[in-house]
Design a protein around this nucleic acid. Sequence first.
DNA 1: AGCGTACTGGGACGCTTGACCCACTTCGCC
DNA 2: GGCGAAGTGGGTCAAGCGTCCCAGTACGCT
Lengths: 205, 205
Amino acid sequence: MPRLAAGDRREALVEAALRVMGRDGLAAGTTRAVVAEAGMSLASFHYVFASRDELLAELVRRVVGRELATATAALDAAAIDPAAGPADCLRAAARGYLGHLEADPGAEQLMLELTLHAVREPDLRPVAREQYRAYAAAAAALLERAAARTGARWRGPLAEPARVLVTLVDGATTTWLVDRDTAATRATLDAAVDLLVARYAVVPA
Amino acid sequence: MPRLAAGDRREALVEAALRVMGRDGLAAGTTRAVVAEAGMSLASFHYVFASRDELLAELVRRVVGRELATATAALDAAAIDPAAGPADCLRAAARGYLGHLEADPGAEQLMLELTLHAVREPDLRPVAREQYRAYAAAAAALLERAAARTGARWRGPLAEPARVLVTLVDGATTTWLVDRDTAATRATLDAAVDLLVARYAVVPA
DNA sequence: AGCGTACTGGGACGCTTGACCCACTTCGCC
DNA sequence: GGCGAAGTGGGTCAAGCGTCCCAGTACGCT
């Protein structure tokens, strides 16, 4: 059987954990369940990770990176129309995220579960903070890019609307996970985007 | 030692569970931890509750009721000033909630944890749905009351702004739990309230 | 060919979990 | 005074947990 390099096995375990926990929840992602999903033995797990917490921390970093990439891609794909305003761009990005959420609800739910877990565990708390700092930065970058592509600009510091955006996406995710009402969530996000642009953007005539 | 009626012991166990889980998280609320907090034996637990899940379901209902009462009280207390507009009312309600969140973060975090858990468990899923239906209804009532007290009225059906409100509060809670930045969260909520009123309210001159 | 490092299989350890059970006590009521 | 229902103490059960360990295997390098 072919040997895997240590880094690859780390990767494989993270991927396996993502599948198991996305499917059945954070609590279901025991070390045993994870290694079973990855087709490895327990020893391999503790050879690569010092502890389950280390896996969890890596998990957060990995998925955050993936989310950010998704959002950016959605925005880029949206800004093709030269007549589009910043609201159109952001709406498209929001829809992109919603599609991502619908396609794999477990992954997003897992992120929420991980965040809540990380806030409780002193060792993991910094990870959660970093996660939300990354979200805020990504939101700011998103706003900036949307403005740049449409010739608009933002009033005042970006931090405030960026935080509103993060709050919105977070809340929309939770709400959608409960009632799975995509139409209502889309309407909420659309309205919120309009509101955001109306307040913070300066759109050239 | 004085006997407690069955209903009282149910109540006492719920209260104990709330303390334990609010302090250390949903996962820490094992049956043993709960009965220890309540000063009872395991047998008493299973005499009153058929299972841990039954406790969890009751927990959600209990706390939801409490939250709604808090929000309504905050709104009522806020609408004293006759010159206040709907935005002032809602801002006050938001601040009331934020104060409540600061005073007992564990309780709100627990609600989030419970919701996420309920969404995963088929048996508990209806409870989560009902919970968010209650939130939406409460948000609608809040909007209605804010309008009534200030002589304003809302454009279109209340469901849409109500959903935005729920989304907002949910997201703000999560974000605050991570970074504990009260000022930023307050700013976010204030801005969001302004946005909401600007879009959905008809304020008389 | 042989050595040392990298890796793995499988079992074990000590502990906690939700659930259950049964002998026992307490109490209102006849 | 005694009976039956209500409630409890404490132990038990099987299952599952994270972690650890060690004997063994496979491979790259000299």
